[in-house]
Amino acid sequence: MYYPISALLIECIILSVVKDKDSYGYEISQTVKLVADIRESTLYPILRKLENNGFLTVYSKEYQGRTRKYYSITSLGREQLEFLKKEWTIYRDTIDNIIIGVMRADGGKSE
């Protein structure tokens, strides 16, 4: 993707990925990489931050003879996701409107 993506938006994406079904590091990372050119060294700290803030909980589960860490969304995480989604919608719509040309700042009225 050409546009850089902010860490907050990545938080929004991660929370969306685990919103309906718990997921693990690699899977989350693959989804994030669909839109963001991001390295694991950046993604991992963001996951840790979400965990530390109480938006995600982590548990280990057996998978093919080894343990795998699964991330699960908390109720606090759902609240945060709602907030981030609302902010994203406003952001997206504003940019869309500016690009289409139906929105201008009041001070800059064209003649």
């Binding site: 860490a7 060294s41 950046t42 991992y44 700290p45 931050k49 530390n52």
Partner: peptide, 15 residues
């Protein structure tokens, strides 16, 4: 490089 990225990002996110 990866380790220093991880350290920096962890510090930045204060986790």
């Amino acid at each position: 490089q990866a380790a220093s990225d991880i350290l920096n990002n962890l510090l930045e996110e204060q986790v």
